[in-house]
Amino acid sequence: MKLLRFLLVGILFGIVMTKSEAISWFRIQEMFRFQDFHMYGIIGVAVVGGAILHYLIKNGSFKNINKEVVTFADKPKTYMASLIGGTCFGLGWAMTGACPGPLYVLVGHGYWVVLVVIGSALLGTLVYGILKDKLPH
């Protein structure tokens, strides 16, 4: 029952990613070429709206469904990892035109070749996990 709620939110997310066209390889190319405001508008509204959301939750002792006061953990201050890992992801994002969320949504659209992309992403994750202690963070 608890997990069913996440299924419903996931369905909403899949619809939002599709109707926003954020799953489109073309839109990601357009973004990295700075030729339209579309993707910047989506991410910008999400960040500004999200910042307001975070502010309201932090200052309002907001309780979640489990009646717990919501707190937000800080991201680890591993700046080298953010920069190098982020650059690797950026290369892959521009090639496949999809970040992790849209990769899953594209499978739902029946683009079966995307399963190969997801398989490669899992392999990349595995290699990171194996090499983790040898990489600069």
């Binding site: 890992g85 690797c88 892959g92 992790p100 990769l103 992309v117 490669s120 992403a121 595995l126």
Partner: peptide, 10 residues
Amino acid sequence: GGFLIGFGTR
């Protein structure tokens, strides 16, 4: 491309 997404995001 997929490999870099998995490796880079993690």
